[in-house]
Amino acid sequence: MINYYGIRAIYTMEMARTWRTLMQSIASPVISTSLYFIVFGSAIGSRLMSIDGVGYGAFIVPGLIMLLLLTESISNASFGIYMPRYLGTIYEVLSAPVSVVEVVIGYVGAATTKSLILAALALLTAQFFVDYDIQHPIWMLTFLLLTAVSFSLFGFIIGIWADSFEKLQVIPMMIVMPLTFLGGTFYSISMLPPFWQTVTLFNPVVYLISGFRWSFYGVSDVSLAVSLAMTLMFLLVCLVIVAWIFKTGYRLKQ
């Protein structure tokens, strides 16, 4: 028996929060993407050589979309579950006949939906600045979806772990942002000295961006299979942590 109405209630409530703040939600990715393209795509990028046969402006499109997708997924999902904890309204979810899986589908589903909408908007915005093509649209959507789900789950975990608004920001700012910048958003890791190339392979974001970029231009730093495997692994790790959180009631129940 699945509490379908329960999932829908959580999802709808979360999406309602998105629609209430629609303008900010849309404006921020559109503005930030535009800024990146003005600075890196046009101003600096015009003086740079193309990478792997792709013009620099177009080269950074997948990386920028990933950057946006990661930060938005984490912030939406972490905020989504942190707020009811902070306000105390979580009592209702805890006392309702909904299973862990249903709660996660509701919250993470809504965060994923929102970040996918924003990623689509950013892709549209990029059209105004550079020409890019998508050679493998199905794979592109697959990576987009897997990444959005994985990082929404990751955000959900942060939202449960955090016990202050400051902590809510710490992981995205201190870990995710650096990993994304160093994970090949703005360069190909083959441009790095051999030692740093090896170091970079420990950065999980490299695999996300590499696989995503391959779906656009057919070129990648690491093979598609490795990218996909790493993405799925990250998803799995997040699922295991979420299962543990609910099993133990960590930060949710006394």
């Binding site: 209630a9 409530m13 929060r17």
Partner: peptide
């Protein structure tokens, strides 16, 4: 920020009705 009717409808759905 939630409206009264939305929050009441939410409770109903959450409990599977």
């Amino acid at each position: 920020f939630e409206t009264v009717s939305a929050t009441v409808a939410f409770s109903r759905g959450l409990f599977g009705l």
